[in-house]
Design a protein around this nucleic acid. Structure first.
Lengths: 301, 301
DNA sequence: TATATTGATAACCGATGCGCATGAATTTCA
DNA sequence: TGAAATTCATGCGCATCGGTTATCAATATA
């Protein structure tokens, strides 16, 4: 004897057990009375036992009916709660979002995006793993992160998809008094003869400043090779030198009064965007978070 | 979004999630591969999300797939266990049997029936409520007992069904030396001139001995009016008198050496049987118990 | 480049579930 | 007492669903 009742059947049964009337139960269940009658008959046939002793005037559960009711009440509750859990997950109201991000992007883009995202989604866990460009791509392609916030990958990988969110121009960063006069953009040659505070060789900023100097045909010695923007901020503020940074990183330098002037020849743009795994469906919560990121980026553009 | 998956769908899904192959999962699930393919597609359509990212070469669960797997494993386990519970009940291997019985019948018929019945059915609770004829019928018709063991009810009630199990003849009970000589049956007139130890007026035995004397046109004064057979046994064994009892009650008189001789003119038979509620399906365990009682009665006949 | 494997799709078909109309049994009420 | 009303069961027609077989498309393998 294999009971193989569907949740539909069980709730139909419960409606009848609770109401004690086929007509009423059918109404509650949203089907016609004959349909409900048949449903119960089928269940009885499947069990080989009556579930209700019924005349045209009364519907009384048999002992088997009482037992099934006990069981079905619990089962249907489980089922509903499971359906609820799944719905919450599918609607992105529960789950987990693991973000790998470059520190400079994480600091600018993530805090407001997370703040907004969590409004109304208190049950979504968010994990942020910040690291340099290589580790971001690695985390995403390895499955450790659902999405990565990074600059456009230099060597496009088949397993990863990159979508640009916003681009950020490089500019000279210095103490307010140290900038050449005027208002317009400055050429990269402005660094000739000034101490250039460089970022660590592995950092994405450093790679772009190197490229800029190369393109401009300049030989500017990189000093210090700092890993953290905060350190750079302190150094510039102290007057140890100047540097070149994308505009959006300014706030990461610290609470100093620093000047920023756009650089050209060449104009360097750091394209920041999202990497995800190709051919993999993200979790609903991740999709929602991606949408939030897009909105966030648009508001910064 | 209302998830309304059937256990069928969920187990199909689990087979796929576990095996990672549509072909294998279909085999496990006992359907063709296209059928399984469509089942999954339907579930995905219902959720509005993919459950597996699949190419012709790989089947990888999406985060939603993983979440559903977590949920479905638990749910299907619940379902199976519920099906199991119900099956045990329906097969009469769990549940409860409440028996109301006349003490004289309970003592004879019930112990061996219960002993046999419990072999292999350790999870069925059995409750025995012994009382006089009236309370037995009351317990059954009121629902307090699933079945009653009693004599044929004098006033057949519409709500109750009586089925005879066995009938038991009345005989003279006395000390071995006190019986008239010979082997054959004795007439009820044998009690004339002998002190007749009677049962309490409400008891079924007393009603039948009264009826017998009436039928035989005898005036035998009833002595004592005992409520318990054990008391009667002591009295007879002590030589206070003799009595008339159905054969099967002999063992209830106590560990005395007593003689029993069939009585005739009239032959009195106590029909013992089962009463159940009319139009009510008994619990499966009750049906099994009834069957056991029938076997038991047959072996005594 | 040919072959094998694997999931998706198409076409078809029987089973199932539902609603409507109706029947049968029983209570209610005139 | 008999007609009306109530309530569950049944017969029938129809749409839907789930299943199978045959086949296609994509990809790994030899």
């Amino acid at each position: 004897m294999r009971m193989n009742f569907t949740p539909q059947q069980l709730t139909a049964f419960l409606h009848l057990a609770r109401s004690g009337s086929f007509g009423e139960a059918a109404r509650l269940h949203g089907v016609s009375q004959p349909a409900l009658s048949r449903t119960i008959q089928q269940m009885e046939a499947a069990l080989g036992r009556r579930l209700f002793d019924r005349t045209t005037r009364s519907v009384v559960p048999t002992p088997t009916g009482l037992e099934l009711r006990r069981i079905a009440e619990a089962l249907v509750a489980e089922f509903d709660s499971a359906a609820d859990d799944l719905a919450r997950f599918v609607e992105g109201r529960s789950g987990r979002v693991a973000v790998a991000a470059l520190p400079s992007i994480a600091a600018v883009l993530l805090p407001p995006a997370i703040a907004r995202f969590r409004e109304g989604r208190p049950d979504v866990e968010i994990e942020v793993r910040d690291g340099l460009s290589g580790s971001v791509l690695e985390a995403v392609s390895g499955g450790g992160a659902d999405l990565g916030l990074t600059i456009r990958p230099p060597h496009p990988q088949a397993a990863l998809v990159y979508r640009s969110l916003l681009s950020d121009e490089f500019g000279l960063v210095c103490r307010p008094g140290d900038a050449p006069g005027g208002e317009g953009p400055l050429p990269w040659s402005v660094f000739q003869g000034r101490p250039f505070i460089a970022m660590a060789a592995a950092s994405s900023v450093r790679q772009m400043t190197d490229a800029a100097f190369l393109q401009a045909g300049l030989a500017v010695p990189p000093l210090y090779g700092c890993a953290f923007l905060g350190t750079v901020g302190h150094m510039v503020a102290t007057g140890l030198g100047v540097t070149a940074l994308p505009r959006l990183t300014l706030s990461l330098l610290g609470p100093f009064d620093l000047a920023w002037r756009r650089l050209e020849r060449p104009v360097m743009r750091r394209s920041m965007g999202i990497v995800t795994r190709a051919g993999r469906s993200p979790a609903p919560a991740v999709l929602e978070f991606l949408a939030q990121l897009e909105r966030q980026a648009k508001s910064l553009r």
